[in-house]
Design a protein around this nucleic acid. Structure first.
Lengths: 157, 157
DNA sequence: TATGAAAGGTTGAACCC
DNA sequence: GGGTTCAACCTTTCATA
């Protein structure tokens, strides 16, 4: 199935699983879409195999878990190495996400959770050692997520 | 239970659910930690009630789903209104995440997925109407996530 | 590709320590 | 707070069209 081969059922599945990927059963989605649970199950398997669904993650409020030092570290990477450096950064202890930006100087944004200032220094140091040029650190207050509304539109095919 | 009342079992639960929040059963975690499945279930319930776990989301590769226009919109909000504006931004169709930054001029970063350039213009317009000052747009190539390694350390309490 | 049925695993609730 | 039991639910696998 090609890239554009995502139909209404697939979109509804993606929307439902973005909203609650743990408690939403195949049956829940099947009932709303008037198909059988096993049809939904197979679609989910296919979306996972295709790499459209890349995982299911519990969203953690680090603040409430007792870790207040959530920081965005802006980095620069030579464009040919950006992807590999982003993958490497994701392996550094303390890193929770990496965003690659297509253009501009600061083209890799690393989100980290540190236990204290020494830990933050260690993380920035490890990123530098990988070959990323660290240009700034910003304290993150909060990050919130929501399902993409485009998956829930009962229209364009 | 207070903020610091997160013990080793809680941390292992958070780590496991960050890695795979859908296929990881209470029993899987229970076996590794040598406790009963119901103990794990009760802990998960408590973490959810406390707001430490705020949700379970399927991670979608929008590129593979057929939507290449993933953009980070940098905004500025007056500090007293930042939190409310961030909440409002999350409700705009097309927005998938909002990151609040503690300091600096560009203190709200909105990640959006747009179907085309007109759609992107609409989203930026709606953010402006809310009262956010839009200062820049960057094309996101990719964003990847990983569980926080700090939850998997068998040491400090 | 969608469906249905049987087998096995998972969960939630009530109860006990 | 942790553990046990059991009924209800969910998923997996296989057969079928």
């Amino acid at each position: 199935m090609t890239l554009q081969g995502i139909d209404e059922l697939d979109r509804q599945i993606l929307f439902a699983l973005q909203r609650d990927g743990r408690e939403t059963s195949s049956r829940d989605i099947a009932e709303r879409m008037d198909v059988s649970p096993s049809t939904v199950r197979k679609r989910i398997d296919r979306l996972e195999d295709q790499g459209v669904i890349t995982g299911y993650r519990a969203e953690v409020d680090f603040d409430r878990a007792g870790y207040q030092l959530q920081v965005q570290i802006s980095c620069s990477a030579p464009v040919p190495e950006r992807e590999a450096l982003a993958d490497a950064a994701l392996e550094v202890d303390g890193v929770v996400s990496v965003r690659e930006i297509a253009s501009g100087e600061e083209n890799v944004q690393v989100r980290v959770v540190a236990t204290d200032n020494d830990d933050l220094t260690r993380i920035a140091g490890e990123l530098s050692e990988l070959g990323l040029s660290v240009s700034g650190e910003l304290l993150i207050r909060r990050e919130t997520f929501t399902p993409w509304a485009g998956f829930d539109e009962r229209s364009e095919e």
